[in-house]
Amino acid sequence: MSSITASDQQASAKGIPEATRAKVIQPAWVRALHWTNAFAMVLMIMSGWQIYNASPLFGFTFPGSITLGGWLGGALLWHFAAMWLLMVNGLIYLALGFATGRFRKKLLPITPVGVISDTKAALTGKLSHEDLSKYNQVQKLLYAGIIVVGILIVLSGLSIWKPVQLQYLTALFGGYDTARYVHFVCMAAIVAFMVVHVALALLVPKSLRAMIIGR
């Protein structure tokens, strides 16, 4: 939370009373990257469903009303356009997450004991949301986990896109056909995360406000 400390220090240095300044929970770069990612992710998922429909891996297809692109060709155009937004945005996020120490400060440490006790607390309604700038152990696990899934879905996507040029990456995922399943499972994990994430954000509206206006 160097951002908060830094800005608070500057504020006091300038003689602005700290009480009148609300604490910044989500810095601007996090908010910008978060919503850009959300937009890119929705485009990727909806066009991805249309692509899936052209050759389903399982015994179902996605209804046309929730897909993007109209047909396979259109969906591929969307998918391979939105991938740049997703990838560039994601790389900036990773770079800044490490460079600013945000990942280390916000997401670590994660301990099995902490995750279990916070899960229990959450399920019994005893988990505190007083300080939104501090993540509980379940949040830490989910946010760290979804970053890993995000990396995996991009890498498995690249290995499906370029199974010859990036054949070592494709081999790492167990070959072309297996990489398709990895890509799908990662999508399913992200969609599941989004459902929980959005539901919880709506349950604790001030967390949603923090992601929009910062505090």
């Binding site: 830094a6 500057q10 770069w29 560039v88 790389l91 990773l94 460079a99």
Partner: peptide, 27 residues
């Protein structure tokens, strides 16, 4: 203030250089 918040305590141009370095060659 916004700029300070963006990358607190970090040299922006250096950080940008680092960020670009982490991008794959292609990007």
């Amino acid at each position: 203030r916004l700029r300070n918040l963006l990358i607190p305590g970090v040299d922006k141009s250096l950080l940008l250089k680092d960020a670009v370095k982490t991008m794959p060659d292609l990007t």
